[in-house]
Nucleic acid binder design. Structure first.
Length: 952
RNA sequence: GGGCAGUUAGUUCAGUUGGUUAGAACGCUUCCUUGACAUGGAAGAGGUCAGAGGUUCGACUCCUCUACUGCCCACCA
């Protein structure tokens, strides 16, 4: 019946989570076939309030950011999912139908890398296995390891509907991907083109702009001489000019010398007076000994470097653009794995960085190397493997983003998407306004293969573009327009039987797969069954809130909104809560590679999931800086709650009428402390509700923490102790009832934050209650205990308990100050003029005596000194204790004088404020009143101090 | 280069639309193994609210500038 002395978090957590899940509590209420959470059935009916006080009738739905299948739960996830779970549990308790769809994405590149690494240990590559076998390996890996993170989410207490768990490679979601791709293609929003993209030579795949992480790198800016070619002096002496070049050269500056092998021009600014005469001339590209023209382009910044740029259209996005304008040849000098190819002459086969060294060396030998400046510049790195990205010309699939972004912007203008906190709105809209096309093809195998088929017949017939092979990303010598090209390509939802043009059956599917985000951006509706017209789609789309970290706004949030608008005609969610980033105490991002990460699972093992959750939430008002000790706050709090409830259960052992019904209380029958705690409870519930409604989880958690610890444990329970000992059985009974009532409500308020411990305790409360059989089976199905009513509000009780707290604190202060042993029972005198205050102390005699450990408490109107006494003064009263033989009068005088000085200063300050004529004129009345009250209080205090001082 | 945050007690942070003598947690000092809890209780010390101006009767709060820290974005070779 009673709680164990020690809270066993591990046991409790496993017990309740499996019960909740097996009973189907995580499923939406509307899944009626399960017969669960039926409000009106005798099982689920809550006696004290009706469930469903929420005016919101739509279901509460959130989409979990799919964690990556290769990942494990890190602190960022723990925070994110704690927040989501709190919101879901809170809304569920408010009676809303709730749905939380969990799942993971297939993390194309990351997962493939993991499996390839495994193969590498057996000295095998994916090519050795071939596509089909390799994919089998990946699936096998996924079956074995892919559920780690979802298991960990359970440990955290996440109340996801696991029966609806999804994976981006599921058949249903794959179908959604194909549908989305084909639809966009048919609308002309997907095209295939030859562009400079971010290429990872290690993963050998294209990356989107978002997947290229730019980092500042201290590199070199190399100055290199390109010999000029005077007209008429050309091919005969190719090598000759180098030696006697004299002034006949120009100097270009570059950070990537190895790309010079692919230079097809040199550019200057058209208005640069230094170089105007060169435009139209030719220079020799050293090492390759090619003749290349000097052209003029606005893009060149005359201020940077030498003002002359080498143009490599196949290896730099700017140069690509310049090359496009000037119809330059594009010479690709690199292989997909970052080596120099056959276009690189003597450097063929060298690694790009090795080639750089060799080229610089060779240039130096020929006297063409001028100098190296140290240069800090941003270099793209693969976000998965951190390899330096190579801007690379290749044929890829793209999504035309502008039309999609415009819809999203319009929706935002109509107020359909709101960011919390508001400042992220600008980040979001700026990105949308400057959006660039999205490269969605990846040259890997793990993922959704692009639903496009190439007809060999058509391509052979020359109808096709210059694509000759599928796997070779060969050089394209002329830029293509961004118009979708149908040549030899058939895009379809399923594999076509034959080519619609030539009826050939020789069709080969495009080997590329889609960017993982191309499936993730459909998540809010693909997980509900789209493109099928399922009941779930109808009922749960659009969803309610999206909770995520800032780094994912572009990757995911913006794209989901665009997809929602495009495919569903409606934004996928209207509120977007961006929470802080979890960092190590040093301020760095937590990451395993830095060795500064804290494993949430370890924290759960050590302190419990509730402790982890509560600590994180309390810290989450902005970026969360973590260290192990920070979790002690939550652990200590959980322990406090446990023990307070244990105490309550012990105190009500003989209580027969324990109930959660608020109607059982008649104010006139209640003691002041009981009236006070009920009033506070109501007040705090409202505050917590207010905070939760606008994602103020940290404030809500902090407010609850202090209410439970300070108000309930430190004061109410302490006040209740003497009341329970009361000889008046009515007082005792009433106190027991209030203890039970308030504590049960606290459990419900706490439940969204600390689900496990509250369930464990609440079940004991349910056993104890007379009407326990009519309570719901689980606290997670109980009603949220705030209904907006103000039935317990009690200003008088709050004021009275305020006096009591002051008096007790005042006495305790005196005890400590004069080092009086706790066992010494003192005599104390309260001096107060107002009758109301006197009555309060008369009513509180027993309580003050207990809490202040007094033998005797007197309450008088006028102060009469009897021997050595010391006092603490408050505006409404003074409290004295006798200190025969302990008090040092001189010390006490000094202290009083100091107090008097302080109080005088305070009064002066107020007078200055109130005395200002403009203040009286302009300040609001309430403020004026407040200031006057303050002044009164200060004056009373001053009188007290002076009276005391005079008595010495 | 552009943008956005932050700067409050020894440390980590609160501080709601300007209006209590600026708060909490941890740490620190003193005391307490009083039958819910030492993962506890009581009391206390500790702050020119980054700096400089401005608006105002009144600024931690609003505005401007400066300094430092952090984050995001950006094609300057």
């Amino acid at each position: 019946m009673d709680l164990d002395k020690q809270y066993n978090s591990k046991e409790v957590e496993t017990k309740w989570y499996s019960l909740w899940e097996s009973k189907g509590y995580f499923r939406p209420q509307s899944d009626e076939k399960r017969g669960l959470r039926a409000r009106d059935s005798s099982l689920g009916k809550v006696p004290h309030e009706s469930l469903g006080t929420s005016p919101e009738r739509r279901p509460y739905v959130i989409v979990i950011p799919p964690p990556n299948v290769t990942g494990i739960l890190h602190m960022g996830h723990a925070l994110n999912n704690s927040i989501q779970d709190i919101l879901v549990r809170w809304n569920r308790m408010k009676g809303r139908d709730t749905l939380w769809v969990p799942g993971v994405d297939h993390a194309g590149i990351a997962t493939q890398n993991v499996v390839e690494k495994k193969l590498a240990k057996e000295k095998k590559t994916r090519w050795d296995l071939g596509r089909e076998k390799f994919l089998k390996e990946v699936w096998k890996w996924k079956e074995e390891h892919g559920s780690t993170i979802t298991r960990q989410l359970r440990r955290l207490g996440a109340s996801c509907d696991w029966s609806r768990e999804r994976f981006t490679m599921d058949e249903g979601l794959s179908k959604a991907v194909r549908e989305a791709f084909v639809t966009l293609y048919e609308k002309g929003l997907i095209y295939r083109g030859n562009y400079i993209i971010n290429w990872c030579p290690r993963c050998e795949t294209a990356l989107s702009d978002e997947e290229a992480a730019h980092k500042d790198v201290q590199g070199g800016l190399y100055h290199i001489k390109y010999p000029c070619l005077p007209a008429g002096r050309l091919s005969s002496e190719v090598r000759g000019p180098y030696e006697k070049m004299g002034e006949d050269h120009i100097v270009v500056a570059t950070t990537r010398p190895e790309t010079m092998l692919g230079d097809t021009a040199v550019a200057v600014h058209p208005d640069d007076p230094r170089y105007k005469h060169l435009i139209g001339q030719k220079v020799i590209l050293p090492l390759m000994e090619r003749e290349i023209p000097v052209i003029a382009d606005e893009l060149v910044d005359p201020e940077f470097g030498t003002g002359i740029v080498k143009v490599t259209p196949a290896h730099d996005p700017n140069d690509f653009a310049i090359g496009h304008r000037h119809k330059l040849e594009q010479v690709n000098v690199m292989t997909p794995d970052g080596k120099i190819n056959e276009n690189g002459g003597a450097y063929k086969g060298m690694d790009r960085f090795e080639a750089r060294k060799k080229i610089l060396h060779d240039l130096e030998e020929r006297g063409l190397f001028v100098r190296r400046d140290s240069h800090l510049h941003a270099v793209g790195h693969c976000y998965r493997c951190d390899t330096v990205i190579e801007p690379y010309l290749s044929k890829q699939w793209f999504v035309k983003m502008q039309p999609l972004a415009e819809k999203a912007l319009k929706a935002h203008e109509q107020g359909k998407t709101v960011f919390y906190p508001d400042r992220w709105t600008k980040v979001y809209t700026n990105w949308l306004r400057n959006i660039r096309d999205w490269c969605i093809s990846r040259q890997i195998w793990w993922g959704h293969q692009i639903p496009a088929w190439h007809c060999s017949q058509c391509q052979a017939a020359g109808l096709a573009s210059r694509t000759s092979g599928l796997d070779k990303r060969e050089i394209q010598t002329s830029p293509e327009s961004r118009v979708p090209s149908n040549d030899g390509i058939i895009v379809a939802r399923e594999k076509p039987g034959k080519c619609p043009r030539c009826s050939s059956k020789d069709l080969v599917q495009d080997p590329d797969v889609l960017d993982t985000w191309f499936s993730s951006w459909l998540w809010p509706f693909s997980t509900l069954g789209w493109p099928e017209k399922t009941d779930d789609v109808k009922k749960f789309y659009p969803t309610s809130d999206l909770i995520t970290a800032p780094e994912i706004i572009f990757f995911w949030v913006a794209r989901m909104i665009m997809a929602g608008l495009e495919f569903m005609g409606e934004v996928p969610f209207s509120r977007i809560y961006i929470h802080g980033t979890v960092r190590a105490a040093t301020g760095l991002k937590m990451s395993k590679s830095l060795g500064n990460s804290i494993d949430p699972l370890e924290v759960i093992e050590e302190m419990g999931a509730d402790a982890l959750r509560y600590s994180m939430i309390m810290l989450s008002s902005q970026d969360v800086f973590l260290s192990r000790e920070k979790f002690e706050v939550g652990r200590n709090f959980a322990n406090k709650v446990w023990n307070a409830c244990r105490f309550v259960l012990m105190q009500i052992a003989d209580l027969k009428e324990a109930s959660a019904d608020p109607k059982q209380f008649e104010r006139s029958a209640l003691s002041l402390p009981s009236r006070w705690i009920l009033s506070r409870l109501e007040e705090k519930s409202a505050g917590i509700e207010r905070h939760l409604a606008q994602f103020g989880l940290a404030q809500a958690a902090t407010e609850l923490y202090h209410f439970v610890w300070d108000d309930f444990c430190d004061w109410y329970i302490e006040l209740a102790k003497p009341m329970i000992q009361s000889e008046d059985p009515a007082v005792k009974l009433q106190t027991q009832k209030v203890l039970f009532f308030v504590c049960e409500r606290i459990l419900r308020l706490l439940h969204p934050f600390v689900p496990f411990i509250t369930e464990e305790i609440w079940q004991k409360f349910k056993e104890r209650a007379v009407d326990g059989k009519t309570w719901p089976e689980s606290i997670m199905l109980a009603a949220w205990p705030h209904d907006g009513k103000k039935q317990f509000h009690d200003a008088a009780a709050q004021k009275a308990v305020g006096f009591l707290q002051d008096a007790v604190t005042g006495i305790r202060d005196l005890r400590v100050r004069f080092q009086i042993a706790p066992t010494d029972k003192l005599k104390a005198v309260v001096v107060c003029k107002e009758k109301g205050t006197q009555e309060v102390f008369k009513a509180f005699e027993r309580e003050v005596k207990t809490l202040g450990r007094l033998a005797e408490l007197q309450c008088v109107r006028e102060f009469q000194k009897k021997g050595a006494m010391a006092a603490n003064s408050f505006a409404a009263f003074d409290v004295f204790i006798s200190l025969e033989g302990i008090l040092d009068p001189e010390e006490e005088k000094k202290r009083l004088q100091k107090k008097i000085r302080e109080t005088e200063q305070w009064i002066e300050q107020i007078l200055k404020k109130v005395g200002n004529p403009s203040f009286a004129e302009k300040a609001p009345k309430e403020i004026l009143e407040k200031e006057k009250e303050k002044l009164e209080d200060a004056k009373k205090l001053l009188v007290s101090y002076k009276t005391q001082l005079a008595s010495f």
